[in-house]
Design a protein around this nucleic acid. Structure first.
Lengths: 229, 229
DNA sequence: ATCAACATGATAGTAATACTATCATTTAGG
DNA sequence: CCTAAATGATAGTATTACTATCATGTTGAT
């Protein structure tokens, strides 16, 4: 099944809306692949321009700089996750089942279609795991935050916190629990693939899907042991 | 009390040992302050050189580049934490008490002396919180890892995992629990100060030490609910 | 005290990056 | 079909991230 949703983004995330033109869409879609291929620090607008047969200057018409493009991609991803969460849980009444769905969503299980609006979700997921923290771990977080650049992430955390509170109305750390759940899912995935000795499901624990299942078990254990304490 | 320990670093972390000369020591100590003042991406060897009255080229004799300097500082920090953990818990037999000490160490509570070998630990702590993940979230993690650049972090995680296993010998996720504990301590601190809506102890929850205490409560809850489950 | 290493200072230079500006050309919408 | 907007093409600037070279200063072994 394909959910062809148009994700409306905050206007401060771009100079010109990249979804309003073919060039803009190519910048976003190939930007994801470039970040994935060479990493954020090695990526340049020049390389991206070559990749999509345009000029550096044209890309600057859409995004102020590489960092802003990253912030845009990360924001898009969190809005996508947020939408998927609503979509996949809106026929479910049990908060516990909703949380279970969320866990699977965060590690990209049950993803029948890897593309959404021609955006390669798996590639974006990898990019977000590796680069998302660079979007906010800057000297100018506060200014960026004032411009609402991180709103999609904060909204998702709020929705997760709401589910947590539905599950356990008196839980005193709903927001921290939500943000640490999301962060943990991501960097444990990174560690599993790149620094496996920091996890219990890396090398030697079998195939990739098996490792992912162990990660899911760990996440489930961590989440519910704290909520059921 | 002051622990004037000389922390011996892996030789691949530098070109010339910065602890072997006055200039080298200034590079490290002022490097921490520069990263703290302007952030990693805005920092340059030129700025650092001006700050310590030397030339760019001299700094390049100690560190290949800015990223390597960051990796060095982060590695130093984790070795310092690891040493502090051993030092502060070696007269304690209860694993639970050891874990309690660790929690306080990770958020820099009970720090009577902010300096160790003239290194400003609080400044380094801030820098590590903000920049440490940039040390490994790169396209060249695997090569860096092969060179053992992250060994201090992995060693600390192993020691924490050992304490966890002493507390709960059959716990199946000791390594992941250790790494997620450490990571969570750091980015929850960052969120608390910079994106407080992602936490439950930000703005409005009173003074700085009060917020830090709430964070400690959260961390304690998270850790022991999973281990005691 | 002397000399040889070695560390640093001082200066210069290169390639790449991160933009900005300008103007011609193409494309799309009313 | 005409106008406005988007893109292409080219150029240029300031800064960064280095590398090279040689002179000068400092240190430590004899």
């Amino acid at each position: 099944m394909e959910y062809s949703v148009y994700i409306r983004m905050n206007e401060r995330l771009f100079l010109r809306d990249p979804e309003s033109s073919d060039l803009g869409r190519r910048i976003v879609r190939q930007g994801i692949l470039l970040f994935n291929d060479v990493g954020f620090e090695e990526a340049t607008f020049r390389k991206l321009a070559e990749r999509i047969n345009t000029k550096e200057a044209s890309i600057y018409r859409y995004f102020e700089n590489k960092h802003r493009l990253l912030v845009y991609l990360v924001a898009w991803y969190w809005q996508w996750v947020d939408f998927q969460l609503v979509f996949r849980t809106n026929n479910i009444s049990s908060p516990r089942e909703k949380l279970e769905k969320l866990l699977r969503l965060l590690i990209l299980l049950d993803l029948d279609d890897s593309f959404s609006n021609d955006i390669d979700i798996r590639a974006l997921h990898s990019t977000v795991i590796r680069e998302a923290s660079k979007a906010y771990l800057t000297h100018h977080v506060t200014e960026d935050n004032c411009q609402q650049l991180f709103k999609p992430y904060k909204d998702l955390c709020q929705h997760v916190a709401d589910i947590i509170l539905a599950y356990r109305p008196d839980y005193p750390y709903a927001h921290s629990r939500a943000s640490s759940l999301i962060e943990t899912a991501h960097y444990q995935t990174f560690f599993m693939h790149n620094l496996p000795s920091l996890t219990d499901f890396g090398r030697g624990s079998g195939s990739e899907p098996e490792a992912t299942n162990k990660l899911l078990d760990f996440m489930r254990h961590l989440l519910f042991s704290s909520l059921d304490a």
